[in-house]
């Protein structure tokens, strides 16, 4: 079938849908098209949207696809409806990071890692549906274990948990300058100033 046709159909579907559409869902809606055709239509759309003049981009979120506004335009969009825009404190980000990377994780483990009481933060994150209770750990006291939710992926613009940068990658990014600081300081300080 006409490739321009399917691309525009997919674009319309993504435009109208409230939630990220998975490839499976698209395939079941567009049963007269091949999976491969749908995929390449998505790829083309993604490329189209990447042009700087466009106001939207095609994001891969929580295993699905969704059209989202360009981050560069955020300032203007916030004026649109006085949307209470998401804000995250250091403590919630820290706690979220620990849960995202270590799940399933208990409150005690989180508090050991952070060195502070985390009950309040956990409650807020649960209320915001960014984390959920996965069950109970089979150790004495049967503590609750926590994990991240689909909303977490949606909010943090993540395709899936695997697309989080690994802790090793993060460390490799951060480490060099740490060594630089230590190694070079005594030598370079005189020369630079």
């Amino acid at each position: 079938m006409d490739p321009a046709g399917i691309k525009s159909v997919v674009e319309s579907l993504l435009f109208v849908s409230d939630v990220p559409l998975t490839l499976d869902r698209l395939c079941s809606i567009l049963e007269e098209f091949e999976r491969g055709e749908i995929l390449s239509a998505i790829d083309e759309l993604k490329r189209d949207c990447n042009q700087p003049a466009r106001g939207i981009f095609l994001a891969e979120i929580a295993g699905g696809f969704q059209l989202r506004s360009r981050p560069e335009n955020a300032d203007y969009l916030r004026r649109l409806s006085r949307i209470r825009f998401a804000k995250f404190s250091h403590s919630s980000l820290e706690t979220l990071a620990i849960i995202a990377y270590r799940q399933p994780v208990t409150r005690a483990e989180i508090e050991y890692l952070r060195g502070v009481d985390s009950g309040g933060v956990l409650k807020t994150l649960l209320d915001k549906k960014l984390i959920r209770i996965l069950g109970k750990k089979d150790i004495p006291g049967k503590p609750l274990i926590y994990g991240t939710t689909r909303e977490f992926l949606e909010t943090f613009n993540l395709k899936d948990l695997a697309s989080l940068p690994t802790l090793k990658e993060i460390q490799e990014l951060a480490e060099p300058d740490l060594y630089e600081e230590q190694g070079k300081l005594p030598l370079d300080e005189g020369g630079e100033r």
Binding site: F15, V16, S17, D18, F57, A59, Q66, L67, R68, S69, R70, P71, A74, L77, L80, I83, F85, A86, K87, F88, H90, L93, E94, L96, A97, I98, A100, Y101, L113, R114, G115, E154, T155, F156, N157, L158, L164, P165, L167, I170, Q171, L173, A174
Partner: peptide, 24 residues
Amino acid sequence: YQKYKEAAMTLGGRELLGRDTFAR
């Protein structure tokens, strides 16, 4: 702790829905 602190910063630096990017 340093590891997770950095991870938290990376997380906060992402294009957040409802802050940097919006959807229908």
